[in-house]
Write a protein that binds this DNA or RNA. Structure first.
Lengths: 252, 252
DNA sequence: TACTTTTAACTAACCAGTTAATCAATGATA
DNA sequence: TATCATTGATTAACTGGTTAGTTAAAAGTA
């Protein structure tokens, strides 16, 4: 933003504008949905002419697909960290819960896009769900299943349905962020304030610790230890949040 | 559908067409979103002229608002059943979890609309969230909070953050239905098959029973008892499911 | 007749996608 | 190394189909 040295090499320049378009597209699609998004708005926010969108991504659909893939790729990389075999099964689960929370926190657009894709998929159109599923989702729940099964076999965890564990972990996190706008109206706190987020994150893991483990106290202790080792990431996405804020102001 | 006796009274006739429009609108908006929905399609599916939509509901936005309110109203009525003071705090919570599951199951459109409204709300525009919040959401979580607090005071429930309980209960249910289309790709089962639904519903309550209660075994037993008293409702919405099916076929 | 409900046909705006022309690196040539 | 055709990147202006919303008249009911 600040450095104004013009890019000389043609390729680099083109790459950069493509990235700019993609960033703008992710923002637009995640806040307005596929049909609500406006190509003019994307072009304007990427500071390029609208025709460029079609030059690089042939159609609105194409741009949308590229946007979804782009965010998905960013997610996949760190989805499986935490399943290091040096950890016990229970620890893997708690770590993946934290991982999931942090991922939603740092990549909010992904969540919006994913939810919208889910609705689209349910009402018939193929969309990107199958791809997302194969690349991001399937490997993760497979790992979780294995962890629950070994955990119950060794007696570390309570005897329980592995799917229910998946639903509990993901569900609580997803619902937290999903319901945040509404909760904002209910509670005397701002759900996206760093302090509140941090506390929520801790409580969620502690809850899992005492809900999943045979030895409740040991589970809670383990949760505390992991929390020390995995501090909450800083939310770097400041620019987007500022833009959000202004968009909000304008429409009030 | 079958009975063809024409309605004589003007008022009744008008009422009925309004309802037909509203039903069609709910279907259209919940599958396509506000901006994806087409007024022509709503009119056609309600078997009225498009101008009637504007006669009764002045604008697309107005129709949308009416649709959301309509579904919300249906939800509110049975949200608070289960908080009968004759039950213990723990029982209230388990019952409300089942209630919530059944509500999503029988009124799927509400969920879609609500989620879309949540995204809309986050990205600035007021929408119906504040209304929905006051009428449906706030009273419910208030009751849940009270239940958790009395439950922990009496020692029936584990000492835990009441909000975390809310997130766990709602989260698991919401996430089950939200992720169902994706899970369909992951699992060898159809998540909307009555048998699968029934099993999931049971496991979810049993999980809560042993996660929330100080006495895990007692919690699980209570869950079983409640499950007997609250059998899964039949999904009456056959027409919508058939239409869904056909819509799906067409777009493949 | 007087009033409400419903319709066919229309319009104005919007918006995805196109076109043809311009601009600026690049690399070949003398 | 100065020149210039080539090619990729970018734009302003346009187009045509779509869609929310209107109007004026017809049909139905009290």
């Amino acid at each position: 933003m600040i450095s104004k040295k013009p890019i000389r090499r043609r390729e680099d320049r083109s790459d950069q504008t493509q990235k700019r378009i993609l960033r703008a597209a992710v923002r637009e699609f995640s806040t307005h949905g596929l049909s609500g998004a406006r190509t003019d708005r994307i072009a304007e926010s990427a500071k390029v002419n609208k025709a460029l969108l079609y030059y690089y991504f042939k159609s609105k659909q194409g741009l949308y697909a590229a946007a979804v893939e782009n965010v998905a790729a960013r997610v996949v990389e760190n989805a499986l960290t935490g399943f290091d075999p040096k950890y016990s099964a229970g620890e893997m689960l708690l770590r993946s819960a934290l991982n999931h929370f942090d991922r939603i926190l740092t990549q909010r657009e992904f969540q919006s896009l994913l939810q919208q894709e889910m609705i689209r998929f349910r009402s018939g159109k193929g969309g990107s769900i199958p791809v997302l599923f194969r690349t991001a989702f399937a490997p993760l729940i497979q790992k979780m299943r294995e962890a629950v099964e070994t955990g119950t076999r060794t007696g570390e965890l309570c005897r329980m349905d592995w799917l229910q564990v998946v639903y509990s972990i993901f569900g609580a996190n997803v619902f937290y962020f999903l319901s945040a706008p509404m909760m904002e109206l209910a509670l005397p706190v701002e759900p996206f304030a760093p302090k509140v987020l941090k506390q929520r994150r801790e409580i969620a893991v502690q809850f899992l610790g005492s809900a999943l483990f045979t030895d409740r106290v040991a589970g809670a202790k383990l949760a505390d230890r992991i929390l020390c080792e995995m501090p909450m990431p800083r939310v770097t996405n400041v620019q987007a949040r500022i833009e959000d804020f202004h968009a909000r102001r304008k429409t009030l």
